[in-house]
Simulated scan of single mutants.
Amino acid sequence: MEGIFVALAIPFKNGKLDEESLARHVDSLTKAGVDGFYPFGTTSQGPYLTLEERREALEVISRNTNRQLMVHVFSFNWQDVVETVRLAEKYGAVAISSIPPTYYRPDYETLRRYYEKLSQLTKLPIFIYNIPQNTGFNVTPDLIARLLSDGVKIAGVKDSTGDITQIMGHVRLGITVLNGADSTILPALMVGAKGCISAMANVLPEVMREMFNDFRAGRLQSAMEKQDLIAKVRELIRDYPGVDGYYRLVHLLRYDFGTVKEPYLRPLSEAEVQKLRDGLIRLGLKPRV
């Protein structure tokens, strides 16, 4: 697995999954040249989606793309994890992933038991999703090395720390490494990551595609310029809560788009959206009126 996987924004409207927006979004991103989709992680509001909402989203995704699918399966309810794995298999996923058990800080044995039990559910490759800024627990290369040594079937890691030293440590293990921090996609590729699972790919998929093409062709200066733009747009929403900043960016730069699932997350205010619009203009981008 390699290339650009979209940490897919899954929009809501009037309290329900906005299937029309999602269908248009998946089709547009496919045409823009992304390599795959990653639903039900952070940008998808995954922890807050019901099992039925996950099924509905996968149905929409499968109807509107032929690209690879990696499904994040974590839930606080183990039976929902089991059922999400089944849905991933049904809709042709090439891999699944999961954050470690969260809320109660896990020790190594908890980690080992969790991923071992997950591996018993499916023959699909399993990726660890490491996002310690949200889970409070960092799955380091040393921990993954222990899991591998103990026979746990880990195919790869999505690492969202933005720590290039840690990315390098994962790469040295010989597993597939996908970068999850938008500000360090290019540096991660340069030290051996196979690609990214990116929230900003919802917003600037064409720029992302060009950056990857530049990197592969050895046009590093051009690739760095595109990485800089991606990082600057990401910076515009850094201080906003939740993930609606990404959803508003899609709305401003691409097409009408739904919002987040309330009340777990909140949409940006009109003043915040205007500030975001002004920031895009300063970067030379042209938000929709």
Rank of each mutant, 00 (worst) to 15 (best):
P101G: 15
V73I: 14
R209F: 04
D159R: 04
L178F: 05
P101N: 06
E235A: 12
G92A: 11
F257C: 07
A201H: 00
T122M: 02
I144W: 11
P267Y: 08
T184H: 10
G36A: 01
V191M: 11
K117L: 14
T50Q: 06
P100K: 02
I164G: 01
T165Q: 14
M208W: 00
S183L: 06
F137S: 06
S149W: 05
N77Y: 10
E116S: 13
P141Q: 00
E206A: 05
I99R: 00
K232C: 04
L58D: 00
A223C: 14
I197L: 12
D256K: 07
G242M: 00
V73T: 12
E262P: 00
E52D: 13
V177P: 08
R219W: 11
D182M: 07
S222W: 02
R238K: 13
E225A: 15
D27N: 05
R55I: 07
L268E: 07
Y264R: 04
K226C: 13
I154W: 08
I175H: 05
L148S: 05
G174I: 11
V85L: 08
Y246D: 08
G192R: 10
L121C: 09
E19Y: 00
Q227N: 11
V60F: 07
V157I: 14
R277E: 06
E83N: 09
R113E: 11
V94N: 09
L58H: 09
Q274V: 07
S269H: 00
N138C: 04
K286N: 09
T42N: 04
V71P: 04
T110V: 13
V82E: 14
L236Q: 06
L111W: 01
V34M: 01
F12N: 08
Q133E: 11
T65S: 12
Q166M: 10
G258S: 10
I10T: 15
R63K: 14
A231W: 00
N213L: 15
A181F: 14
G136L: 02
S160A: 15
M1G: 10
G195T: 06
L268M: 07
H170W: 08
E270K: 10
L265R: 01
F37Q: 02
D239L: 10
T102I: 15
R54S: 15
R234T: 09
T42A: 13
D163A: 08
K158P: 01
A201L: 07
P125F: 08
A217H: 02
L229N: 09
N130L: 05
L249N: 04
A223F: 12
A217T: 06
S198A: 08
L236G: 06
V191A: 06
I154K: 04
L283Q: 06
H72E: 11
E109V: 12
F37V: 09
V34Q: 05
L111D: 03
T140N: 07
V171S: 08
Q133G: 10
M70E: 03
D142C: 01
L22Q: 00
R146N: 00
D150V: 00
D142Y: 05
L8V: 01
L147N: 03
N179P: 02
K158V: 03
L29I: 14
G92D: 11
Y246H: 13
G192I: 08
K31H: 13
E20H: 02
P11F: 14
S149I: 00
A223H: 02
Y103A: 12
R112L: 09
L58Y: 13
P241S: 03
L51P: 03
S98E: 03
D107N: 10
G156C: 05
H170Q: 03
F215V: 11
I126K: 01
E53A: 06
I144L: 12
R282G: 08
N138L: 04
